[in-house]
Design a protein around this nucleic acid. Sequence first.
DNA 1: TCAAAAGTGTTAAACATACACCCATGG
DNA 2: CCATGGGTGTATGTTTAACACTTTTGA
Lengths: 220, 220
Amino acid sequence: MQTHFTIDCVIYSFNEGKLQVLLTERNEYPYKDWWALPGFFVDKNEEMEGAVKRILYEHTGLKDIFMEQLGAFAGVKRHPQGRILTVAFSTIVKYDDVKSKIKPMTSYMRQASWFPVTALPELAFDHHQIIQQSLQKLKNNIHYSTAVYEFLPEKFTLTQLQQVYEAILGKELDKRNFRKKIANDGFLKELQEVQKGVSYRAARLYKFDKRKFQKHVGVE
Amino acid sequence: MQTHFTIDCVIYSFNEGKLQVLLTERNEYPYKDWWALPGFFVDKNEEMEGAVKRILYEHTGLKDIFMEQLGAFAGVKRHPQGRILTVAFSTIVKYDDVKSKIKPMTSYMRQASWFPVTALPELAFDHHQIIQQSLQKLKNNIHYSTAVYEFLPEKFTLTQLQQVYEAILGKELDKRNFRKKIANDGFLKELQEVQKGVSYRAARLYKFDKRKFQKHVGVE
DNA sequence: TCAAAAGTGTTAAACATACACCCATGG
DNA sequence: CCATGGGTGTATGTTTAACACTTTTGA
């Protein structure tokens, strides 16, 4: 037995203090005019991971981004035309890197736009479920993955980092406890450099140090 | 574009102090005579979850077992005849419930047999990779899931429970610390009953109390 | 000098780890 | 009476959580 095979991509970014997801407005039936996750059919002989990269590229112009499989969604009724198995992936991009590049490159969708995860529109297919499952995983793994750093520029302040944590977890954190934890983890590199262009005390900048992280986690 | 669609099932049990996986010996090409995970094609109009149950049933005679999706494996080269997308699931059964029922119910495989995860034979396709990924997940979630109790009979001793933990984690645990942790979690029900038929001091029996567990985890 | 955000320590409670001996039972 | 596994407590270090004020800076 054969099935159609697509991938759907949950693309996150962080902007205006909020965790955002990139959605596209469909220009084709079914679900014409609905918002949906960016997703397409996988080509014959195309590796799944390659398909994710291709779609990410077609939507954002970006390459070489961290991405992770969430799982397969294969409900017989998830698509009105019969089973279309989709494998969902999630990806994180830096909002500023991407904002000028976001535009539909196929006529299948009318526009692409960011939505805060706390204020999603009604979505096509089972895409709401996919996002919720993905979000849950992001929360669960926040302390064991490098995901938070994917949201931030290379150099960032501790307050920015804390805001990303808060947006993902959906709750406020204590500043002192947060800084203690981060300091204790010890995989940030403190720079001899501070923020510029702010009208208040400038915060120190930090970098994520991948080497220290890998030592900490116990690389295999 | 369409692809063949199978599911593969990682079926665990606990026996002789070891974590075991059920494998089948293939009687068909490709990989004739190799050991592989139990797996089959999903039927048209069959829900994926239904297919897992069906295959589990065909191999073990069991129904209504906890099962969880691991993810999709879709490499173009994972099957010699071209892409066959498989979605892997994992499942836990009680060895004693199952041991008399295990037998091939299709001529596609010659026999089914348990192997300790520490001594697996060479496996067909990418099944070794699937098992390793599944094992990792089992370890990661051991404290947050009810999986360990799926390995045990309704009434069990604390030593049996500890052995399951040890088999999954692949390391020894301190008896006192383990008991403190379990007591502290507080979702076991102590029975007024002890082991029978042992030639040493009989151990107290316990039950897993699902209600208490759900309160503890914070059910949603 | 004011507004805004940066930066900083202490205490209490919960939890994890290391470690060794006596007890109850059946044979 | 002995072999076997059952059962128990203490001390130490680590992690988490709660909580508020002073400092720096640019406008």
